[in-house]
Amino acid sequence: MAGASRGVGRGIARALGEAGATVIVTARSSETGQRTEGRAEFVEDTAREVDAAGGKGHHYLCDHTSERAVDTLVHWILRRFGRIDVAVSSVWGGNEGYDGDRYPDGAAWGTPFWRRSAEPFLGFLGGGPQAGLLLARAVAPAMVSAKSGLIAFVSFDTQVGYLGDVFYDLAKATTNRLAFACAQELGPHGVTALGLSPGFVRTERAVDIGHADRATESPLYAGRALAALAADPALGTQAGRILHAGDLAAHYGFTDADGTQPARFCIGQ
C-alpha cells in the first residue's frame, strides 16, 4: 500500500485490515525520521491501524519516486511474504505546500497555466503517475508469474470534465491512462489493473486547510471500495476502467465509516 501515511492511502490500508489482510504500508513519513512537510501522520500509525482493524500491518519507509527504492521494497516483500496479491498506489505529492489558497510558487488553484511556471508540474507527475508506474513495473513480474493480482491506481476520473487546474487535471489524466495501458499489457497474464476515483475526501490536509465541510466522504470509503474489488471473483471485467467509490458502494453494498453511502462525487457539487 504505497502512500499510506495519511489520506486515502491510510483509509485503504485500514479497510484491507478490516478484511483480514496482511498489509505492507509504505511512505516517506516516519515517527523516527523524515516527515513530509513536518506533518504529524506517520506510516507506523497506519500499520497500527491495520492491526486494530483486524489485519496485520507492517511498515516500510520508501520514497516512491525512486526506482531503486521501490524495487528494493518489492524484493523485500517477496523475500518475506512470498507473494503480492494487491498493489495500490495512492502516492500524491501535488498538494504539498498548498495552504488552501496558494501553492508554494504563489499560484492559486486554477491560475491560468500561462501565468505560472511549468516547473511545479514535474512535482505533480513525480508524486502521482510516475510513482504509480514505478510500483506497477516492480510488482508486475511476480503477479505475471502467479497469473493473478490487482494493481490499483488512486486517481480522479477526468472523463466527467475538466478538474479546474491544468497541472492537477493532466496528472490525474496521466494516471488514468496508465491504468488503462497497464491493463492492456497485464490482462492476458491474468493480472488486473484499474483506477479508483474517490470523491472529495476528508483527509487530514482537507481538515487543516478548512475544506472539511466540503468533503463528501472519509478515506475509509475508498478503502472499502478497494477491498470489495479485491474480493470480487469477477474482478477482471473491471480491467482498465476508472471506478468511482460511490458507484462501487451501490454495487457491493458497503458504507462509509459513519454508515452512510455517498453517491458518486461530481465536479462542481
Rank of each mutant, 00 (worst) to 15 (best):
Y98C: 07
G195R: 02
P120N: 11
F167E: 06
E31A: 14
S5L: 07
E217V: 01
A225N: 00
L61Q: 13
L78E: 12
L122S: 15
A245F: 02
F121K: 07
L229P: 03
G54I: 12
D232F: 13
R214S: 15
A52K: 10
G223R: 03
L243N: 05
V91G: 11
D63P: 15
A222M: 00
F81Q: 14
V160F: 00
R177V: 06
A138N: 07
T260A: 12
G127A: 14
G127S: 06
A227L: 05
E67V: 12
L16W: 11
W114A: 14
V74H: 09
W76D: 15
H251E: 13
H251I: 04
A69W: 10
V91T: 13
V25T: 11
G126C: 07
A146T: 04
A146K: 07
A230S: 13
R241F: 07
F156Y: 12
A27Y: 10
D85R: 00
F167P: 00
P219G: 08
P141N: 08
A231S: 13
R14H: 07
L178P: 08
T36N: 10
V201L: 03
S89V: 00
Q238L: 11
E185R: 01
S5F: 03
D256S: 05
G164C: 06
I151G: 02
D165M: 09
R79V: 05
G161T: 05
P104K: 07
G223A: 06
T22L: 15
F167H: 15
S89I: 00
I151K: 04
G236E: 11
V201Q: 09
G11C: 07
H64N: 15
G123W: 07
G132F: 01
A108E: 13
D105K: 13
W92E: 14
V201S: 06
P188S: 09
A179K: 02
A257P: 01
S29M: 01
L134I: 14
C182G: 07
